[in-house]
Design a protein around this nucleic acid. Structure first.
Lengths: 138, 138
DNA sequence: TCCTACATTAGACGTTGTCTAAGTCAAGAT
DNA sequence: ATCTTGACTTAGACAACGTCTAATGTAGGA
């Protein structure tokens, strides 16, 4: 976390209270908040923080590769601080919970050359869908 | 296409002019329109069709499994009439063009049991990203 | 042909995200 | 320590996408 702030300072970022608070909210594993959730949690620590600043800061962190955008439901985008380790997502079809997961093998290898239509394929995003333990017993 | 209308009639659907026009717009391969694009094209055939009807009809077709919802960019959802043949999507990072593609192998097999966290995993969605031929030469 | 439950419509409303203009402040220079 | 300046933050308007409601229209069976 302070690693993150160090890196950002190294890139010429001004370290404002607002940015520190957003970074703090995004600290942790299996964190997948929407922008408005980040804003709500940030406002508990710094009540006067504005929505625009949260959106701006999230956008900047995405551009810098420090966090990932995830859209698993076509609704609000979610932000995943675990951007430095390649991973995919497992989503509960009932409650929407998201887990980070690590499939084995080369995901790109599954797409044969004749199915690439001349594209230079660079990345793959995989979303596994199922029912989580909590929802299947309920 | 008329197959589709037959199936829907069999399920108790009223065949209105509006629903026929939406079905007609969604006919074809590699079709991935947004709701508003569907509305615009439908309005060329039936000028008085309303936005609400297009949204309603698309939602019903999704519930019936006749078309698929696709969200590749976190913006507007797109609708894919090719719902009866399992497939994934290849998206151009520059222009947003979407191709239907067919990866080989069992996509679910890539997720080991210890990475399933007790979920009953039922489906996988894969989005390949790259640059299409048109955009890479330009 | 008539009836009625289902379908459609216009437009208000909700959510999510972006933009602008004015004020504020972090951090280097002095 | 204070000054200066350009980057940062703010409130609120605006935009894109989608949903909902109440009034009206109509498909298809009786």
């Amino acid at each position: 976390m302070s690693d993150l702030l160090e890196r950002l300072r190294g890139r010429g970022w001004r370290l404002t209270a607002q940015r520190r608070v957003v970074a703090e909210v995004l600290d942790g594993d299996h964190v997948h908040y929407t922008a408005d959730e980040v804003h709500a949690k940030a406002a508990e620590l710094l009540p006067e923080i504005s929505r625009a600043t949260v959106y701006n800061t999230l956008g900047e962190l995405v551009s810098l590769g420090e966090i990932m955008e995830v859209s698993t439901d076509g609704r609000a985008k979610r932000y995943d601080p675990n951007a430095h380790h390649a991973h995919q997502h497992l989503v509960c079809s009932r409650c929407g919970t998201i887990r980070d997961v690590h499939p084995v093998g080369d995901l790109l290898a599954g797409l044969p050359a004749e199915e690439r239509f001349g594209f230079q394929v660079a990345a793959v995003e995989v979303t596994y869908r199922g029912v989580c333990p909590g929802c299947s017993t309920a």
